[in-house]
Simulated assay, not measured.
Amino acid sequence: MRRAKITIVGAGNVGATCAHWCAAGELGDVVLLDIPRTEDMPRGKALDLMQASPIMGFDSNIVGTTDYADTADSDVIVVTAGLPRKPGMSRDDLLATNAKIVTSVAEEIKATSPNAVIIVVSNPLDAMVQQMFKVTGFEPAKVIGQAGVLDTARYRTFLAMELGVSVEDISALLMGGHGDTMVPIPSCTSVGGIPVTQLISKERLDEIVDRTRKGGAEIVSLLKTGSAYYAPAAACAQMVEAIVKDKKRVIPVAAYCESEYGVGGYYVGVPVVLGSGGVERIIELSLTDEETKAFQNSVDAVKSLVSTMDGLLAE
């Protein structure tokens, strides 16, 4: 049985760190791709990672390239390509430029790996995964966005810090768009099985949620010359693992919702069962009135973002 073939498009911080996590976890062989003008950079990073394998004890093969031919017949493709955020820049500021980049990547993937499951990471996430779906024409289950795993990880981190407990004992869920309108689901948040509302006041929980929403911007402001990459890359690797090992993980991702939650044909963050076929099913929750209102507000923001993107691409 051959190893899974995992391609990562974009050899910057997120892409290279994702390659690191995937290779070290022996999830498959990794192809690290970047644009031609980067010349030998992806090859250098791939070789450096390969030379770490005897030390860390993993046997994944890692190839760096600028040629999509080397990615042919990939099982999973993680798309990190695009401009990162800089201080003072919102995810939406990236819209026009990254939409064109994602369009180009989508066309290459469609030609070289028509059976792959695609995980989009590029921002603004919800619009970029919508564009990837539109251009590739792949079935919606095989085009997904990485946001929910990262957002939930940030939420769990802040909750663990607040309570002084292990992150392993925090179970949480965030839904909706990836950004300021993301929706926490308190009814699905617990600490060792104890509802979080019994441990943290609503006012303090609201503050933690607000910090989670701004989690990426907080790191951008601290780094000053880039954006988060360790946690986003780890989130991607977890999704890759769920797919290549057919783990049937129940995790939040940006998935294509038609009748589900009354969304009507857009990608938004919802809990799914993630396995070898990509999104194997979307889990529909019974939300409270407050949660439903917040989720609809987030969906409306995603629809507006996609409409703006379509307008920019039509110019």
Score class of each variant (00 low, 15 high):
Leu47His: 13
Val78Phe: 00
Asn61Lys: 10
Asn61Phe: 07
Leu47Arg: 11
Ala19Gly: 04
Ala81Val: 03
Arg43Ala: 14
Asp67Met: 03
Val79Thr: 09
Gly15Met: 07
Asp67Asn: 08
Ile35Gln: 12
Arg91Ile: 07
Asp34Asn: 05
Pro42His: 08
Leu27Val: 00
Asp34His: 02
Gly88Ser: 09
Ile35Cys: 01
Asp48Trp: 15
Glu26Met: 05
Ser53Phe: 07
Met89Gln: 14
Leu83Gly: 10
Met50Arg: 14
Gly25Phe: 04
Gly44Leu: 05
Trp21Ser: 02
Arg37Phe: 11
Cys18Val: 15
Val63Phe: 03
Gly82Gln: 08
Pro84Arg: 05
Asp40Pro: 11
Arg43His: 12
Asp75Ile: 00
Pro42Thr: 11
Gly64Val: 02
Arg91Pro: 08
Val31Ser: 01
Leu49Asn: 14
Gly82Asn: 11
Arg91Leu: 01
Thr71Cys: 15
Trp21Glu: 01
Val30Arg: 05
Thr65Trp: 03
Gln51Phe: 08
Ala16Glu: 14
Cys22Met: 03
Asp67Pro: 04
Thr38Leu: 02
Glu26His: 06
Gly88Ala: 12
Pro54Arg: 04
Gly28Met: 02
Ala52Ser: 06
Ile55Asp: 11
Ala69Gln: 11
Arg85Met: 09
Gly82His: 11
Arg85Leu: 10
Ala19Asn: 10
Gly82Cys: 09
Thr71Met: 13
Ala72Gly: 10
Val76Asn: 03
Gly15Leu: 05
Ile62Arg: 02
Gly28Arg: 01
Asp29Ala: 00
Arg85Ala: 05
His20Phe: 07
Ile62Trp: 03
Leu47Thr: 06
Gly88Trp: 14
Asp75Pro: 10
Ile77Asn: 10
Val79Ser: 09
Lys86Tyr: 12
Thr80Cys: 15
Asp70Pro: 14
Ile55Val: 12
Val76Trp: 04
Lys45Gly: 01
Asp29Asn: 03
Val76Glu: 05
Gly88Asn: 15
Pro36Leu: 06
Glu39Lys: 15
Ile62Glu: 03
Thr66Lys: 01
Asp40Glu: 15
Leu49Trp: 15
Ala52Asn: 02
Val79Glu: 12
Met56Thr: 06
Trp21Lys: 00
Asp70Ala: 12
Asp48Ala: 07
Asp40Lys: 15
Ala23Asp: 15
Ser74Met: 03
Asp40Cys: 10
Asp70Glu: 15
Thr17Asn: 06
Ile35Asn: 07
Met56Asn: 08
Asn61Glu: 13
Cys22Thr: 02
His20Cys: 07
Arg85Asp: 04
Ala16Asn: 14
Ala72Ser: 14
Gln51Glu: 12
Tyr68Val: 04
Met41Ser: 12
Ala81Asp: 04
Ser74Ile: 05
Gly44Arg: 11
Asp59Trp: 05
Ala52Trp: 13
Cys18Tyr: 11
Asp92Trp: 01
Met41Asp: 08
Leu33Ser: 02
Leu33Met: 08
Pro36Phe: 09
Ala23Thr: 06
Ala52Gly: 00
